[in-house]
Design a protein around this nucleic acid. Structure first.
Lengths: 234, 234
DNA sequence: CCGACACTTCGCTTATGGTCAAACTATGCA
DNA sequence: TGCATAGTTTGACCATAAGCGAAGTGTCGG
């Protein structure tokens, strides 16, 4: 009983946070999964940056959004899939026919590229999301910045592909983490594991390196194989 | 763009309607499906009848509740399952931290049960979520109620388990849809496919039927197998 | 070190909206 | 008809919070 009552007030706090036009605009803007800066969100919210700052603080306080500082920018993104789910539930009530997050495939692939020694761009973001959904990787509970670990299931799967997870883990560098993508503004897989995966993808000719740039192109083989193995929609 | 903007304000109006402590108490009281009178709701909302009347009007205006006059009483009830679903989404957010930090959950398994001919309860909801994440099933784009289809990848996977997807599809009944779970208030897999999966789970002894009730119990084998195959956290 | 930029904090004004008591309407019972 | 109960409407009061501009903090680039 007591727990129920406290949950009610928690819900009302959260709903009140959503229930303000400027904040709703911010949340629905972030619903595409892309991170944005405070000034960008001020524009979509149609308020001044100072007002937006207050709103963003409130949303963060209710764990509806999270912030990641990078240089002098602060990138805001949705608090997680649960937040998206809750917003969708409200959308259904609002009578809105909800658009089913359908990115056009060829456009996404054009932005595949390498970031130091691992993949970046839309392809990398998609793979990152699929690895998470398949539970091959998992966010580390420790609040250190966006670290991942490989699950037991994932270790077998990566090994079957030909990725030496143990070797990657024993390196002195960071093992695996969510690296924020500049173009997509969503995380992709970085660290030793990300590097090992890129090297494997090149070896298997799933992707090819451009000769004079960091651009990567997905081969027909790669499209087929990655689609079948990860369910990646390429 | 314009449609998106109008949806945002509709959502913020609805969220604002929920985002008030007294109204949230009313809605959560009605979540059990029972209709109640205005005075009863005034008591649970901890306000005077006059204040409650204003709140009830507002909730009705946003279609969150409906009223049914009967003599000199007016019975208020939730606006429908969609409202329950939206409230559930917000509850998940409110209790999200609590839920995230309880990984091993024998308590969750206790709520496994059958619903007509398919699984329901926490186990079924978890499996439903995993099937979606693994992209074995996919929401039908058509706006008909929560229909699912099996993906190419999913068809292979279900066949490998021993589920005859084609047979399920050719039945005269509904193939697959998200059935709203009243205890979990989240969807689980219903329809011919859900029935086929339950029958398979019983055959493989992943779950056992209680003799005199609709309760299901997950066997040690089922815990192991479903964890390994679907990544379900049981 | 400085200026440009991104963002936050503060003080103030304004407006929205929750609250109640009192008055009002409507129904049922005798 | 008259009274009691259920519920709504209205008006006044007050608290909360959204809004902005100005001033402050912090970070990058020269």
């Amino acid at each position: 009983m007591h727990a129920v009552a406290s949950e009610e007030i928690a819900v009302s706090r959260i709903a009140a946070a959503i229930g303000e036009a400027a904040r709703a605009r911010i949340l629905y803007c972030l619903l595409d999964g892309h991170a944005r800066t405070g000034t960008e969100l001020a524009i979509v919210a149609e308020v001044t940056p100072s007002t937006a700052s207050v709103h963003l603080n409130k949303l963060r306080q209710e764990r509806l959004i999270q912030v990641q500082a990078q240089g002098r920018h602060r990138y805001y993104s949705l608090g997680g899939p649960r937040v998206a789910r809750a917003l969708e539930g409200l959308s259904v009530l609002a009578g809105g026919t909800h658009k089913a997050f359908v990115p056009s495939a060829p456009a996404r692939l054009r932005t595949a590229r390498s970031c130091y020694d691992h993949m970046a761009g839309a392809l990398a973001v998609e793979l990152h999301d699929r690895f998470l959904a398949l539970r091959w990787i998992k966010a580390e509970p420790g609040r250190n910045n966006h670290a991942y670990d490989v699950t037991v299931m994932g270790a077998q799967a990566f090994a079957a592909l030909g990725v030496d997870v143990d070797a990657a883990r024993s390196m002195r560098r960071r093992f695996a983490y969510g690296c924020l993508d500049w173009s997509e503004r969503r995380p992709h897989l970085g660290g030793a594991l990300g590097a090992a995966f890129l090297s494997l993808s090149l070896k298997k000719r799933w992707v090819d390196r451009d000769l004079d740039s960091r651009a990567l192109s997905v081969t027909a083989l790669g499209r087929r194989e990655m689609g079948a193995r990860f369910g990646a929609e390429l």
